[in-house]
């Protein structure tokens, strides 16, 4: 646990103090990580959010129609996606797709002496390897959540328009009226917290891999499990605090 907190402090040091010592992160590497973590993860996040929106609208429309509240389907999809499902589903995709890759990559670098080679060259592994991934994740986590929210709403609209045959204009109006800016911002705040947890846990576990290929495999599983648990617990805590 101490090593995990030390890693967080070191990341903050290189982010805040580093640029003043002419040791800021390399912009090219940050963009490379943004592409790997975010841009390449967009189709998967979008597809997941679309299916979640579809499922949510189908489940809600049946029950709400029975209760005579069928008009509230857009409200439910919109608020659920922005407050909970957008940030949560995006984080789960990021953990499975990018968090595991970060742990495996850093773990392999550790067992093949690449990280030791960096240390011996007086290059700080946290500054060189972790900080660009951290910045990329902190930018792309909330950004992917915005896209997920949008695709979730599209999923709800598909059910609303194509299955129930209701109007697009009313779907948009109700979606926008029901969700407040607070719902959007609280969801984005959650996604930033999740991104922080995912990238720091993935990097911490990857940098401390022991053993060979088996160790890397075990570490990757461990990192995914720890990140999922951390995201679920923090989600419950933040939901309690916000709502």
């Amino acid at each position: 646990m101490n090593a995990y907190f030390r890693l967080n402090v070191e990341i903050l040091f290189w982010l805040i103090i580093g640029p003043f010592q002419r040791q800021g992160p390399k912009v090219a590497e940050v963009f490379r990580q943004i592409v790997r973590i975010g841009v390449e993860g967009l189709p998967m996040s979008a597809m997941t959010a679309l299916t979640v929106g579809l499922t949510l609208a189908m489940q809600a429309s049946r029950k709400l129609t029975e209760l005579g509240a069928g008009m509230y389907v857009p409200d439910m999809v919109s608020v659920s996606m922005m407050r909970e499902l957008g940030p949560l589903m995006t984080s789960i995709i990021i953990i499975g797709r990018s968090g595991s890759a970060v742990t495996a990559e850093l773990g392999t670098m550790r067992v093949s002496e690449e990280i030791e080679a960096l240390r011996v060259m007086a290059i700080k592994p946290v500054k060189f390897l972790v900080v660009p991934r951290f910045i990329a994740m902190m930018i792309m986590g909330p950004l992917l959540t915005v896209f997920s929210n949008y695709f979730g709403l599209v999923g709800g609209w598909i059910v609303w328009k194509l299955i129930q045959g209701k109007g697009t204009a009313i779907y948009i109006t109700r979606s926008l009226e029901s969700a407040t800016a607070g719902d959007l911002y609280s969801g984005l705040f959650k996604s930033a917290v999740f991104a922080w947890l995912v990238v720091t846990i993935s990097c911490h576990v990857g940098l401390n891999v022991k053993g060979g290929a088996e160790g890397v495999g075990r570490a990757t599983t461990r990192s995914v499990v720890l990140a999922l648990v951390a995201v679920f617990i923090s989600n419950a805590t933040l939901t309690y605090l916000f709502f």
């Binding site: 990559e105 670098m109 093949s112 002496e113 690449e114 030791e116 080679a117 060259m121 007086a122 060189f128």
Partner: peptide, 25 residues
Amino acid sequence: MLFQSGALLQSLTIGENISLPLLEN
């Protein structure tokens, strides 16, 4: 330091590996 395995950074090209200590230090 020349490591037994070479310990080159696999994500970088050969030129980037050699320039790394120069650019960083």
